[in-house]
């Protein structure tokens, strides 16, 4: 008897993990324009809800699906690849029109993408890429270009210090070691500032994308290097932590030490408007509208580019003051 109960419970747990339990269906509004009599159904397998950025991303996809009249089937993989694969398989069985997902990790997707291809369901990648050699497994990849973000940060710095003749001492707070945004933001930044030998990165450590680590590492930087001119942080949160460390050292963030960050979340924008950060490169999670647009084009048989970059901008202190009241995340 006990064994039977356990078996039943195990089945229950599996069913929930499949995404069946956490699936929600957004109500379709007006019928899709190009789709004739039936509405488009999209299966979206999200990574999880690990950060504010991700939550904003989810909300954007759900809201723009509703606005575009696309019937959205949504699943949350809780940062686990096997959950995502199960969700995609269930979308294939349900015969959705198009599948979109943000891969948790880069590798291991070939089999399930083959299944989708065999079932003639187009796949769109969002936010993160996969490393499959076979590019026909997916239609397009929509997401931020992290290298470009690093370059934008570097370009602002080069412009700001164009008339400077002495050395510019830069410290860098990297994201989680080995993650794509950390690698690419570092590479893009280094490429731009590398052209001029006066820009010197005197210290570069990982702050794990968190405020606490950002503060701790910056505190150590400040002790070991007495004259730091510029801080480049791979996200806002580490920059915010570093601001506290700089203030603790009796210096003025934004003046004594210029700060450049990436992301443009609300707390970061607030600090930018307050003059504590000097420049933020946006990494937008609001890629829902572009995703719906791409899905419609793919289904209408139009050719779409292999790589679509999210529409993103940059913010100075003045622009932050204007943008802040309407900031969604």
């Amino acid at each position: 008897m006990f064994k039977k109960i356990m078996a039943l419970m195990a089945v229950g747990v599996l069913a929930t993990a499949c995404g069946g339990g956490s699936e929600t269906t957004a109500e379709g509004g007006a019928p899709a324009s190009g789709g004739g009599d039936s509405t488009i159904t999209m299966g979206f397998a999200q990574v999880g809800a690990e950060s504010g950025w991700r939550t904003a991303n989810t909300k954007s996809v759900q809201e723009s699906a509703k606005a575009a009249g696309i019937d959205l089937k949504f699943s949350d993989a809780q940062q686990k690849q096997e959950n995502q694969i199960k969700a995609i398989r269930s979308y294939i069985q349900q015969k959705v029109d198009v599948i979109a997902f943000s891969p948790v990790v880069e590798s291991g997707w070939d089999t399930v993408l083959q299944e989708a291809k065999a079932a003639n369901i187009p796949v769109i990648l969002t936010d993160r890429a996969v490393d499959s050699a076979d590019k026909t497994l997916y239609k397009t990849f929509l997401g931020s270009d992290f290298v470009e973000e690093g370059k934008k940060a570097g370009q602002w710095l080069v412009e700001q210090y164009a008339s400077e003749t002495g050395d510019v001492n830069i410290v860098e707070l990297q994201g989680t070691t080995g993650s794509a945004p950390a690698n690419d933001r570092k590479a893009g930044f280094a490429e731009v500032i590398g052209a001029d030998p006066k820009f010197k990165v005197i210290a570069s450590q990982s702050g794990d994308f968190t405020r606490a680590k950002g503060k701790e590492v910056m505190d150590a930087f400040l002790k070991a290097n007495p004259d730091i001119d510029v801080l480049y942080a791979h996200n806002d949160d580490m920059g915010l932590g570093a601001i506290e460390a700089i203030e603790g050292a009796g210096k003025v963030p934004g003046k004594d030490i210029k700060i450049i960050t990436v992301d443009a979340v609300k707390d970061g924008m607030q600090a930018l408007a307050d003059g504590k950060i000097n420049y933020i490169v946006e990494c937008s999670p609001l890629l829902g509208p572009q995703l719906m647009d791409l899905a419609k084009k793919v289904l209408a048989g139009e050719t779409v580019p292999e790589r679509v970059v999210t529409e993103e901008t940059t913010f100075t202190q003045e622009q932050a003051k204007q943008a802040l009241p309407t900031r969604q995340y």
Binding site: T177, S204, S206
Partner: peptide, 15 residues
């Protein structure tokens, strides 16, 4: 140990 790593500049890949 952590502070030492930051101060003497051990590269993050080998931390």
């Amino acid at each position: 140990l952590t502070t030492t790593i930051y101060s003497i500049g051990v590269p993050p890949e080998t931390t």
